[in-house]
Design a protein around this nucleic acid. Structure first.
Ligand SMILES: [Mn+2]
Ligand SMILES: [Mn+2]
Ligand SMILES: [Zn+2]
Ligand SMILES: [Zn+2]
Lengths: 136, 136
DNA sequence: AGCGAGTTGCGAGTTATTCGCAGTTACTAT
DNA sequence: ATAGTAACTGCGAATAACTCGCAACTCGCT
């Protein structure tokens, strides 16, 4: 009667690689596929990068992880339960700050009311200039 | 006393390729580098893709064009004077809608007041689900 | 006309991601 | 427990989207 493993509950096989990818994403907060691979290699040195990519996609399909776009390049992955903030990326210094989703509540409502658009404010970063760079 | 060409005013040389890249961006509205190249090739078939990339960057450096990120892939370019709207990209059907920048006015103010962050709402798209896809 | 820095075309090099396939492994059904 | 099978993995190759190095050309200046 022990509960099923969360991966089994999602209909996925439990492999060491998959489990390690998931816990790497959880422990890293934000991470690129490359960073996830590095983390996983601490305990499972042989993991292939394509296995990481495939598992990130699989885990995303079942809703355990998701990705955001913080810059011009590739996506960064988050644990699903942890994505509760906006990303503020500074075009000048490159820093990535966080802000609570509530900061966008009014914006989300405007888009819903006026355009029928249901917004996910976390998927793309918010771009601009951070406080430190705005000041001279 | 005839006015200088706008490219000369920006300190750039006027080459056929550069002028064509700029007018392609202007006539296309949104365009990827590949699409710009295609457009330019209508009148200048030999243009090399790297010339397009280099000119897009050069034109961006002097403020005549700029880019936004509409999806997972590469950037899309806009004429600077034309970027007066938000992009609403639908994750379900892939459509890209527009909304006036004013829709984000309150959001921009909140980020400025609470975080000192000066937001450029056009650089990254707004992601979500369009009205057509929200409805069953 | 003549010069020199800026620009172009081209081929090669990167980087990030995806794919095909053969061998392995996790679950399932005896 | 055992065997069957579909899922999964590693690996190497392929693709996509740029980026770079360099020799040839050309724009703007004198
Ligand atoms: Mn950008
Ligand atoms: Mn995405
Ligand atoms: Zn900054
Ligand atoms: Zn849609």
């Amino acid at each position: 009667m022990a509960g099923k493993h969360e991966l089994h509950e999602k209909g996925l096989r439990l492999t060491p690689q998959r489990e390690l990818v998931l816990s790497a994403v959880r422990s890293l907060g934000h991470a690129t596929p490359e960073e996830v691979a590095e983390k996983v290699r601490e305990t499972h040195p042989g993991i292939n990068l394509s296995t990481v990519y495939r598992n990130l996609e699989t885990l995303q399909n079942v809703g355990l992880v998701l990705h955001t776009h913080l810059g011009h390049g590739g996506a960064t992955y988050h644990a699903a339960e942890e994505l509760t903030h906006l990303h503020l990326v500074c075009g000048t210094c490159g820093s990535v700050g966080d802000a609570p989703i509530e900061a966008a509540a009014n914006f989300v409502n405007v888009l819903a009311d006026d355009y029928g658009f249901k917004t996910d404010v976390t998927h793309f970063a918010v771009y601009g200039t951070c406080a430190a760079c705005v000041k001279p």
